[in-house]
Amino acid sequence: MSDSLGATGPQGLQGSAQGAGSAAPAAGDLIKDTTTQTFAADVLEASMQTPVIVDFWAPWCGPCKQLTPIIEKVVQQAQGAVKLVKMNIDEHPEVAQQLRVQSIPAVFAFKNGQPVDGFMGALPESQVKRFVEALAGGALAPTQAEQMLEAGQAALDAGDIGAAAQAFAAVLQEDRENPKAIAGLARCYIESGDHDRAAEVLGLAEGKLAEDPDVKGAAAALEVARSGAATANDDLAPLQAAVEADPANHQARFDLAVALNAAGDREGATDHLVEIVRRERKWNDEAAREQLVQFFEAWGPMDDATKAGRRKLSAVLFS
C-alpha cells in the first residue's frame, strides 16, 4: 500500500471534511467511529498529538469481523500510545475513495496529519502488534497468548513435553491460526514420536501461514524425524566402515549423516554433509546441501548446531 499512501496527502481529505464542527476526541478515548464530517477532527487533527489508526470496514465483510477485534485489542494494550478510528465505508465512502481503497479491510496509520503506513486484509495478532509497535515507537507489553507461547517454548526446551503441549494448545483454542502455537504443538508431537498427530497440527497452517518460518521449521523437523525414524535403530558401524574404506562413497556418507542426526549427533551429521559438498557439490542434485538446509530449518536458527553448520557450509561454498 505504500504507493497509495504516498500519493495521497491530507489536503484532499481536508477538503471533503472542511467545516466539520466536531471537537477532537477527548483524552483517553482510544477507540471510536468516525464519519466523513468528523474525519478531519478524529484523524487528521488528532494525529498531530497521537498516532491514529483508521480501520475501513463494512458490515458484510467477513475478514473485517476477524481483524477489527484484533486491532482493538492491540490498541488497548498500547495504553494510549496510539488511537483507533473505525469508518464504515458503506455509510461513508468518500474518504476511502480518496485514499484509493479497493478492498477491505484496509488499515491506514496517520501521524502529524499524514498517512504514513498501512496494510490490506486480515492479519494475525502478532503482525498487527508489530504494525502498532512500529507506529507507537516502542514494544508493547506481552499479551497473554505471547506469555503462554514463551512458557510453552521454555517447557519444550526443558524437555517437559506435556506442559509445552498444554501451553501451545491453549493458545490455539483462542487463535487457530497462530503460527508459533501450531509449530510448537507440532514439535511436541514430533518429540513424542507421534508423527501423524504432528502432521495433523501442521495441516492447520494453510496458504500464506504455511510459509511462516516457525511453521516451515516444524514441517522440516517432521520430515527429518520421519526419515530418521527408519535409521534410528540401525548399526552405524557398516556405514562408518564404508566411508572409511572409500571416502568418495557419497551415498554411504549421506546415509551416515542422516543416521547420526537421528542418533542425536548433529555435529557429526553436519560434518559429513559438508564434506560431501566440499568433495562434489553437485552430487545427486546438491542433495547434501539441501539436506543441510533442511536440518538447519528443523533445528531452528538459534540452535548452536545450526550456527556452527552454517559457518562450516559457508566456508566451503565461498572458499
Rank of each mutant, 00 (worst) to 15 (best):
A46R: 10
A136F: 12
A23I: 10
P301N: 13
E146V: 06
G9P: 01
Q97N: 06
N88T: 13
F168Q: 11
E200K: 07
H250Q: 06
R187I: 02
Q79N: 14
A136S: 12
E206D: 11
Q66V: 14
A210I: 08
V132W: 06
A181C: 12
S192F: 04
L156E: 14
F56L: 00
K307L: 13
E275R: 14
A288M: 03
F296Q: 02
K129S: 07
L273F: 09
E206M: 14
V43S: 06
Q102A: 02
P142D: 13
A315W: 07
L156C: 05
I70K: 12
P105F: 07
V201D: 03
K83C: 06
E177Y: 13
E223F: 01
E200P: 00
R253A: 15
S4G: 03
I89N: 01
Q11C: 01
F39M: 08
E206N: 11
V107T: 03
L13G: 00
G137H: 03
I89P: 00
G118W: 00
G268P: 01
R187V: 07
D265F: 05
Q291S: 13
A287P: 04
K180I: 01
L236Y: 15
V258T: 08
N112G: 14
F254W: 15
A199D: 10
Q114P: 01
V316A: 11
G21Q: 14
C64A: 09
P247T: 09
A205S: 06
L185I: 11
R130G: 04
E286Y: 13
T68S: 12
A165P: 01
R176L: 04
K180L: 12
V132A: 06
L123G: 02
E146Q: 09
D212N: 14
K65M: 12
G121D: 03
A210Y: 07
A183W: 15
G203M: 08
M120L: 12
K111W: 10
V107G: 00
N249W: 02
A17R: 08
V116D: 08
A237K: 10
E267M: 09
E94R: 13
Q144D: 14
L209H: 10
R130H: 11
E150D: 13
C64Q: 10
L172P: 01
A169I: 09
